[in-house]
Amino acid sequence: MGRGTATLLAAVAAALALPLLALGLNLPWWLALVVAVAVFGGIWLVLKPGGGLGPGLTDEAVLDARSATAQGLLLEAANAIDRLRKARREIKDAPMRTEIAHLLEVGDKVVREVREDPNRAMAVRRLLTFYLPNAASVADGWRTLEARAVPSTERMTQTREVMGGLSQAFAKYADDVAEPELQTLDLDLKVLKDALKADLSNTP
């Protein structure tokens, strides 16, 4: 395949990936752009004249793209966690501080596991890019309420309810971070069950 054709196909794929990632998967535009560039580079390397990529290098390009995506997600999550920690230090209400401490515990656990294995990143993308930043915003809002001479009782009640819902969402994603391992387990179990069934059925 000619170099021009390879470039054109890679550019088309990247152009399609950008809105899909940003609008379909709700990734931040800057992160979607990073992934789209990685898509362009990976496809161009595969299709360029002479098939200049061996299988190992193709795998390397895929791993680089996954790693870049994970690092972008972790950067956004780390900023949100820092905001949550700052808010917790300044909040006076003990139950709210406890709620935030729970969110921080789960957030730190998920971030740590994604750092150890970038393949887990997409399973918890929504936690890292949506729930964590919004939890930080809600915590900041509570801190603002506390600073008022007469805080709104209705707003404080709603904030407590939302924080309770966030705790449930965080717990769900703490389980989802193990999804790649569970998928591997499901595959291993199926293979072993099929093998055992075949071998035992042939036993005299």
Rank of each mutant, 00 (worst) to 15 (best):
D59W: 12
A78R: 13
N26W: 07
E116H: 09
E105H: 07
L9T: 10
G141P: 06
L25P: 02
A174D: 06
A80G: 00
P180W: 06
V34T: 15
G165E: 05
L192H: 13
R126P: 00
F130I: 09
K48L: 13
R3W: 09
L185H: 08
M156N: 15
A87T: 02
N134D: 10
H102F: 14
V12A: 02
V110E: 02
A149N: 13
S201E: 12
M156H: 14
L9M: 12
S152P: 04
A147Y: 03
E99T: 03
G50I: 03
N26C: 12
P95K: 00
V150K: 12
A101C: 03
L47A: 00
D59K: 12
K48P: 02
Q183T: 11
D186V: 04
E99C: 02
M96H: 04
R89E: 11
L53P: 02
D176P: 02
A61Y: 09
V35Y: 02
V34Q: 05
L196S: 09
V110N: 01
V37P: 06
A36S: 13
A38R: 07
I81W: 04
Q168I: 05
R89W: 00
R143K: 10
W142G: 01
P133G: 02
A147Q: 08
K109H: 06
L47R: 06
S137K: 08
A135H: 02
P180Y: 09
A15W: 03
D82N: 15
I81D: 01
D199S: 14
L128C: 04
A36E: 01
A139W: 00
W44I: 06
R120V: 04
W30E: 12
L74V: 03
I43M: 11
D194R: 07
L103N: 05
R83D: 08
K190S: 10
R66N: 06
E146W: 02
E154L: 14
K86T: 14
A123D: 11
A174V: 03
T159Y: 03
M156D: 08
L196P: 02
N26I: 08
G72C: 03
T58Y: 13
T129D: 06
V191S: 12
L8C: 05
K190R: 14
V35D: 07
V34M: 07
